[in-house]
Design a protein around this nucleic acid. Sequence first.
DNA 1: CATTGATATGAATCCTACG
DNA 2: ACGTAGGATTCATATCAAT
Lengths: 351, 351
Amino acid sequence: MKKDIILQGDCVQILKDLPSKSVDLIFADPPYFMQTQNELLRVNGEKFNGVDDKWDKFESFEAYDKFCHNWLKECKRILKDNGSIWVIGSFQNIFRIGYIMQNLSFWVLNDIIWAKTNPVPNFKGTRFCNSHESLIWCAKNKNSKYTFNYKTMKFLNNNKQEKSVWNLALCTGNERLKDKNNKKLHSTQKPELLLEKIILSSSKEKDLILDPFFGTGTTGAVARRLGRHFLGIEENKIYIDSAKIRIKNIKTISNELTQAKLEIKPPRISLESLKKVGLLKDNEKFYDKNKNFICTLKQDNKVRDKKELLSIHKMAAKHLNKKNHNGWNFFYVLRNDALKSIDSLRYEYEK
Amino acid sequence: MKKDIILQGDCVQILKDLPSKSVDLIFADPPYFMQTQNELLRVNGEKFNGVDDKWDKFESFEAYDKFCHNWLKECKRILKDNGSIWVIGSFQNIFRIGYIMQNLSFWVLNDIIWAKTNPVPNFKGTRFCNSHESLIWCAKNKNSKYTFNYKTMKFLNNNKQEKSVWNLALCTGNERLKDKNNKKLHSTQKPELLLEKIILSSSKEKDLILDPFFGTGTTGAVARRLGRHFLGIEENKIYIDSAKIRIKNIKTISNELTQAKLEIKPPRISLESLKKVGLLKDNEKFYDKNKNFICTLKQDNKVRDKKELLSIHKMAAKHLNKKNHNGWNFFYVLRNDALKSIDSLRYEYEK
DNA sequence: CATTGATATGAATCCTACG
DNA sequence: ACGTAGGATTCATATCAAT
């Protein structure tokens, strides 16, 4: 499988030639089918340059649906069983996209709202200002596995669980690619921060990311920066040329976040193993964090309080008056008269 | 047409008996078809009581689609030509809803995101916290007129144009209706603030609002409070009984906002009319706000500067170096040596 | 009465590695 | 593939009890 290249040509045709189950992540920013009618004027009378590109014209919903069904079907085939797909859209097209994806038995994990912090206002005051775009994030099937770097996203969100509404600015300023006349090169260039969240949350280092509507290569640029591979499809040569230069100048970074180091689970080391190396011993006394004696470790690696013999998890839950609790984070032993978490013993074992 | 009542029975059957083009606004909160599988436990091991109601069960997407097509089709028939419809949903169903509505040739005006300020977290850390719901707001057809109280919404939003993302809290505390055991009476009661924004933005006083999934009557309660009429449809008698008591206790308020007084347009009075009553005269000198002489009013109700004869709007734009400007807000005349806006003359004419 | 802290709860498609 | 044991996982807010 080729990597880090841009294939020029018709999206669906090229998709059909790609091998099945070969990519880890797909990001798709298809035409939105805006159906704008008349020229829209700004309040000062100037023409507003929205999306008026050839690639956004379709004859009808039926034609648009058919087009989307075709590329989405191929995407499903090309996606690895444990991969996932993101599609971005707006109210003009997102219902078509979501409907088709569900019918293709993609399994929706989230719909994410990109709430724009600096949207284009509604000049005429005829509706609410359309200040967001929608993304649909799907696993391949209902019971498919998928990558979700939960703790990475939590870390980046002030250590709170990340939500389905993302407040992000539009792509403007230096980030926005310009043509010879210093006008925007592409009418719908997405901000790199958006792609960063997508790629960091749902892929691993060295994963291959497919973008069937590559445009000016935001996906490729961010993929390269975060140490992922990309594969782009794009019809327009001007966009491709621009994307190539853009991506060439990107330097890959590698750190705890790009490597998803935060997602590493604590070592699965049993009480038995800790006993074997002498970090715990039979009949060892277990305390809570306030140094209250709770129970005693027994031979079968269960613990006994005054009444019952239970697993460390059930025992912890019992003393917290809960139904469940992780015993590794509840119990302490005494070492040199000081409390020591039994969880920390697992890390000592590892060393 | 009956008003301010709740019809008990099957939603689609009752809709079919309602007359065509008879309601001004529809708010629909249909079942979401959540497709949950197993019991979900909170972090402390307790059971999470989500939506596990009979009314949310469907056999398949096909069955759900058919149901939605049926009630939406009737809603379209019942809606007045200048009415509009709101439907709320979540990622499980909103794509089905939007797809069907577009196919029925409803015309999407906005999709509104209700971003919850206090959502239920994702207990297991398996996805992004689903912290929003989506609303689709449609006019009856592509070129239909509809009510949008733009200035009212702007006033309520700190005098900034209201956007498509609304930050609102869940319905909790005293507002949440409880059963005998002090548990939530309805699993999905919506906050009144949400309905308030919907009704204030897209209806007028005394309008008739239809809610085909009335539940515990949030739509009815807010409609009555804001001086609108309602018509509810609901199957469950317990919900209906509760809604009746709830609505009975509501007092109607009436003020600038409920009456949409802010939406009143300035009087459309011509320069000619102002001349006829002597508020303006031919060859009157027009100044800008800094008392610079700009142009002279001519017989044909155009104005002439040194070079051209133009409409007051084109002349204002020319002197502001713009393509368009409202001349009524740009020009002043002299009265007792003081500037007086020509716009203010129109209000004097009215008196 | 004011402040602090514990508890309850809200439209939820909510685990996974190992045998 | 499937069952099972191990063990990882939550945020804002309202209410109510305690100080």
